[in-house]
């Protein structure tokens, strides 16, 4: 069922490659052998039922979570074989926005977005300019001086998005960047991602529940379920696929293979709990 991704242009090392990732939390298997490789400049969208481990997978890609087994390659280098100093250097290539924003709540919005810029040693005038630019990209002028706690959930998410793109990273990871946003903002975020995709060399992984966004911003869409990437294909093909799991997800049906699995899991979990 798993479709091998189209081989990248021969000889070119993929930007990101994961090999047989396994991860469990307290005996609960979350990732059960995830494989994929993402060539430079490609945009991958990951969809899947809530709680299947999409966020966990994304955190593996930047080395926030260490897999129980399996390997991560960034630019062809085995991430966990590097020294911690090299790992920190590799992470500088990434920008990531978190599902819950994860803004630094002791800093103003300005300082949040400026953080990666200052850390990479940009001069103050450039920092100021770039922060303004990023905040206006996500349609948030005039909040620079505010604390994250003074913002709405959707605003926080957009600030997190601005912080992720501020230092113009080579690889972008977005964890549900447009969940909980109004339709206009959803489209604004999609447009920004699309714009960055057009730029050469930027590699993007996005998690989303919006099939419309997936169609728009993905070169490839993958379905994560049961700890594996069940199916990956270009958006049009993905949406038309007759794979039962994909169909259930795309059409948003309560009944289907994805729910069967869920029911099986609860059935096995119940006796333990009592």
């Amino acid at each position: 069922m798993l479709k091998e991704p189209a081989p990248a242009e021969a000889g070119k090392t993929p930007k990101i490659r994961v090999e047989d990732l396994h991860k469990s939390f307290d005996g609960k298997v979350v990732l059960d052998g995830v494989n994929f490789s993402l060539p430079e400049g490609e945009s991958l969208v990951v969809v899947g039922p809530s709680g299947t481990g999409k966020s966990v997978l994304l955190k593996h890609l930047i080395g926030l979570v260490r897999p129980d087994s399996g390997r991560l390659f960034v630019d062809g280098r085995d991430f966990w074989a590097l020294s911690d100093l090299e790992r920190t250097a590799v992470r500088k290539k990434f920008g990531m926005s978190f599902q819950e924003g994860a803004l630094f709540d002791s800093m103003s919005v300005f300082d949040n977005v400026a953080f990666p810029l200052r850390r990479s040693g940009r001069p103050p005038s450039e920092v100021r300019e770039r922060v303004r630019e990023c905040l206006s990209i996500v349609h948030l002028p005039n909040v620079e001086g505010k604390r994250p706690s003074e913002l709405s959930g959707g605003m926080r998410r957009r600030v997190g998005f601005a912080r992720a793109i501020a230092h113009e990273p080579e690889i972008l990871l977005f964890d549900e960047p447009n969940t909980g946003l109004d339709p206009i903002m959803t489209d604004v975020i999609d447009e920004v991602i699309l714009e960055m995709k057009e730029k050469l060399d930027v590699t993007i992984v996005t998690i989303t529940h919006h099939m419309e966004s997936a169609r728009k911003i993905g070169d490839r869409v993958a379905l994560l379920a049961g700890g594996k990437l069940l199916y990956q294909a270009p958006p049009e093909e993905f949406l038309k696929s007759d794979d039962p799991a994909v169909r259930q997800f795309v059409e948003g049906k309560a009944e289907g293979p994805l729910t069967v699995e869920f029911e099986r899991e609860t059935a096995t979990a119940a006796p333990e709990a009592s």
């Binding site: 955190k59 926030l64 819950e100 994860a102």
Partner: peptide, 16 residues
């Protein structure tokens, strides 16, 4: 900072 993923965010922004 740990439970609100701010420590993860630091790591993700290339800061140890």
């Amino acid at each position: 900072m740990r439970v609100t993923e701010q420590i993860d965010a630091l790591t993700a922004l290339g800061t140890e």
